[in-house]
Design a protein around this nucleic acid. Structure first.
Length: 419
RNA sequence: GGAGAGAUGGCUGAGCGGUUGAAAGCACCGGUCUUGAAAACCGGCAAAGGGGCAACUCUUUCCUGGGUUCGAAUCCCAGUCUCUCCGCCA
């Protein structure tokens, strides 16, 4: 959510900033609504003051007048509220403004590679895809999932299920013990206002799983990422300075409809309706956002370093960034079967954009109440890490060597092979 | 699902028709003291919104939404949430 005052002060700058997102805002309308809103507030306040004074005098002769004033206030208030609503509806559907150092471009073609790490493995045979490997091992079962549930679901079985759990536990341990994050086991269901807070609603409703909970209550959704619930831990809260920075990590299932990706990645478990992800969230003073983004990204790449998986880091262009982000680094892992890098983590700073939506604030040194900065990043997507391990650690016989750091989590198992 | 109790500032907690935006304590910030810190003492400290270059000022807000009243944190109605007890249950 943008601050209307900033827009009012420098409308042109605001319009230009959103052009980087290839959006053309109707500023006229926005400013008109803002002006109308403020005018109505002023009129209302004059009457309110008058009414207040009458009641203070306790003069019975003026009581009738006070009644008529009340009626006028009521009409003004209705008008003002509806104007404010219109204004907020527009504001809440506008994305965050890209940071100055974000490359400007329409889509992923303008993303910039920043660094490459790790040696790409060489095979003296044609490397198989993760789904071939998994199905041959009889440890990935897509057919069964489509029978019980539908497309874009999978059964992970036996040693691969263990591997999936090992990956998740390993990541959690690194983030908790080495990177200074606090572990959270959060609700996987959130209310509508929580989804609004991080920006999933109102614009991206069609990618969310809404659940039928209780007609009378606020609408409820399955989380598309733990970012939603972790970031909202600061919802309607004013933090003391000594509570910051707050760094949180959770390993949770994520649920997405993947609307609009029909035909994309239909094979295998790259794109599923349900997947596990270890999520990092930081809540910080806004001035520390960009430094925290570097720190968070390093926390994520550390996992890949430890797993000895080759990856590259890229910075997303203005047109490719998510709705709430001001700057985003993607980390892409090497997938031998595709002969290219694929996204395994996305780390974003949202500045104060989300904090404004969920009223997440803190007291600074001067005791002023200000909006916080929020960041989120995958550390990492568990399903895709599983894929990357399968493909990068595969042997000619179809077995999978267990990465050194995961062995303690796998009962010292050395490799996964067909029974 | 049945029966009670409650919801007030960052937190704890008073107030129960008219200078109450709200006592007190804690936390926090500033100062005195101290080699430094702690303690002690002094001072400051709710939020949102409007007007103003600013000093400042005005309005709203005591869970939410209605109602009574000239006037509501305080009275009435509805709803939401939390807690306790009983039942059910992983």
């Amino acid at each position: 959510m943008h601050n209307i005052k900033d827009i009012r002060n420098d409308p042109k700058k605001f319009k230009d900033s959103l052009k980087k997102r290839f959006l053309d805002v109707d500023l006229e309308n926005l400013l008109d609504l803002d002006q109308k809103n403020r005018k109505l507030i002023q009129e209302k306040e004059i009457l309110e003051k008058e009414k207040k004074e009458i009641s203070k005098t306790k003069n019975k002769d003026l009581f009738e007048k006070s009644k008529t004033i009340s009626q006028k206030i009521e009409t003004l208030e209705k008008d003002q509220k509806s104007t404010k609503n219109k204004l907020e509806n527009i504001l809440s559907s506008l994305p965050n403004i890209p940071n100055d150092d974000v490359p400007v471009g329409k889509d992923e073609n303008s993303n910039l590679e920043i660094s490459k790490n790790g040696a790409i493995p060489k095979f003296d045979f044609k490397p198989k895809s993760h789904f071939e490997l998994g199905e041959n091992l009889k440890m990935l079962d897509f057919e069964l999932a489509s029978k019980t549930t539908g497309s874009r679901f999978v059964f992970v079985k036996d040693k691969l299920a263990l591997l999936e759990r090992a990956i998740s536990n390993f990541m959690l341990d690194v983030h908790i013990n080495q990177n200074g994050y606090q572990e959270i086991s959060p609700p996987l269901i959130v209310s509508e206002s929580t989804m609004y807070g991080t920006g999933q609603l109102p614009k991206f409703e069609n990618d969310q799983f809404e659940i039928n909970f209780d007609e009378k209550e606020e609408r409820k959704f399955l989380i598309p990422t733990a970012e939603v619930i972790l970031t909202n831990m600061g919802k309607d809260k004013i933090f003391q300075l000594n509570e910051l920075p707050l760094r949180l990590v959770a390993s949770t299932p994520c649920f997405r409809k993947e609307a609009g990706s029909y035909g994309k990645d239909t094979k295998g478990m790259i794109r599923q309706h349900q997947f596990y992800k270890v999520e990092l969230v930081s809540i910080v003073e806004p001035k520390n956002c960009l430094a925290e983004l570097e720190r968070m990204t390093n926390s994520a790449t550390k996992i890949l370093d430890l797993l000895k998986l080759p990856y590259r880091k890229i910075v997303l262009s203005s047109g490719d960034m998510g709705f709430s982000a001001e700057k985003t680094f993607d980390i892409e892992v090497w997938l031998p079967s595709e002969n290219k890098y694929r996204e395994i983590s996305s780390c974003s700073s949202c500045g104060t954009f989300q904090a404004r939506r969920m009223k997440s604030r803190y007291k600074n040194k001067n005791n002023e109440t200000l909006f916080l900065g929020t960041l989120n990043g995958s550390g990492l997507a568990v399903g895709r890490t599983l894929i990357a391990i399968l493909e990068n650690y595969q042997q000619s016989d179809g077995s999978i060597i267990i990465p050194e750091v995961l062995k303690p989590y796998m009962n010292k198992l050395e490799k996964i092979s067909k029974k």
